[in-house]
Write a protein that binds this DNA or RNA. Structure first.
Lengths: 259, 259
DNA sequence: ATGCATTTGTTCGTATGTATG
DNA sequence: GCATACATACGAACAAATGCA
């Protein structure tokens, strides 16, 4: 439906070299270029959460376009959840853009607290099922092995920021299903079945378009990609504890690795 | 996959004696049988990486089922990563994915050689220009500072796997432009201007849809997302040497972090 | 630049078999 | 036996992306 709006071609007036270089005949709609430019500023950290954008008048002047064109770009960003617009006040960078810092000792709640937000979670599914080929390969068990699968929506200040599928070996951790049902966090449930500590061994990152209800759960448009991580967590002895697939909405969430 | 090849060139007559035998009352769903049949062909090596499957219409004709039924089978294979489907083009056997392992000492050519492939590169652009806000923030210099920008396509066995924009401070490295023009790799050029060693300090990962000619350079469809990394490289003393934005085609390339 | 053919993507509607209670 | 829900399968039409003349 967003595509319906984009059938607009500008008649290319006098050139305006000092503005943030828009291509007036590059085949890309001006409002898309503007949206991308602002989005880039948010991604690069130049514009941080809660910061106020220049007024529409200022933006239209600096880009050398009509205010309507800027408004269309802002509408797109607003729909994507990157900014919110308040009549009579201005436009503001959304607060829920967050850098998800990944390290060996990453815990969801700690990452969220590091951003001064309140971590939360919502269990979408908890059941036992046999491992398919991909999961079996990730965990290093034979295909068909009975697994415990926890599907969980990660929240920061009540806003969805991640959608994780956590796979554990049912045989290796008897009682885990019950523990997960009662404990608020994965870390707590694992502690109940004897895993005092674990660490992230490897993280694989890829991206794909959302499928099924992923976009709905993550409160994002279907035309933006998900960041997908596959991670292997091991205990102190190096034995595999969990294989997790987590999906993050872009560009609201970015993943940051320190080396 | 004898069946697929035969039906590929046959113009689908009224009766279809050559079609793969599907059991219509054997308790196994038709789409599962079709998926298994194609999967078998991939496993047997009859269909190799990058090869194009028959169109959905051809497949549905040769299997004697509705196009929806074939689509369901293809969807299953696509989800399993065995094939990828491109609107307007067709369905293709998936090529083996390249794990791009990122660490503090990541060098493009070393990553590619670790996969027993021949690294290569093609310079798409090399010029000086003032830093915009995003680049300035990444490098920690004032906006407008003169930068050297190198745009480079990374190749593995002549296949494009990355598209990098490398930003260096022109003032800090006099002669870098000439060095980059002559040296095949970034590492070699930096050595020529006195940077004996450098390491990756931080990597930020996000994803977005390709724009402009990115999809063309990376030889990927426009409806699949790019993985985008922003990395900061520093020298032994911790001073920033390079700010790089690199785009990778999904799902051909995945990024792997070891911790 | 434009239109056309090809191919996949999406959404209707319809019908049937199977498992459940 | 009957109602219900669900997965499966078929048919038609149109939308959107691609490639080519």
């Amino acid at each position: 439906m967003r595509e319906l709006h984009m059938t607009e071609r500008s008649p290319a007036p006098a050139d305006r070299p000092e503005a943030a270089a828009l291509e007036r005949s590059g085949g890309i709609a001006l409002w898309r270029q503007i949206a991308r430019s602002i989005e880039g500023g948010i991604g690069a950290g130049t514009l941080t959460g809660g910061a106020r954008l220049p007024t529409e008048a200022q933006l239209s002047a600096s880009f050398g376009v009509n205010r309507h064109t800027v408004r269309r770009a802002l509408e797109e960003l607003s729909r994507a959840g990157l900014i919110h617009v308040e009549q009579g006040r201005g436009s503001f960078i959304a607060e829920d853009v967050l850098d998800y810092a990944v390290s060996a000792r990453t815990r969801f709640s700690e990452v969220i607290r590091a951003h001064n937000k309140e971590p939360g979670g919502r269990v979408l599914g908890l059941r036992e099922l046999p491992a398919d080929a991909a999961i079996a390969a990730g965990l290093g068990v034979p295909p068909g092995t009975l697994m415990v699968l926890l599907e969980r929506l990660g929240l920061a200040d009540e806003r969805p920021v991640s959608l994780g599928s956590h796979h554990f070996s049912a045989a290796r951790f008897p009682g885990l299903l019950a523990a997960l049902r009662e404990c608020p966090t994965v870390t707590a449930a694992l502690a109940r079945v004897g895993v005092a500590d674990y660490r992230r061994q490897q993280t694989r990152v890829t991206a794909r378009m959302p499928q099924g209800e992923e976009a709905k759960w993550l409160h994002m448009p279907r035309n933006r990609p998900l960041l997908v991580t596959e991670s292997v967590n091991v205990d102190a002895a190096g034995a595999v504890v969990e294989f997790g697939i987590t999906r993050y909405p872009t560009p609201r969430v970015q993943i940051v690795f320190e080396s």
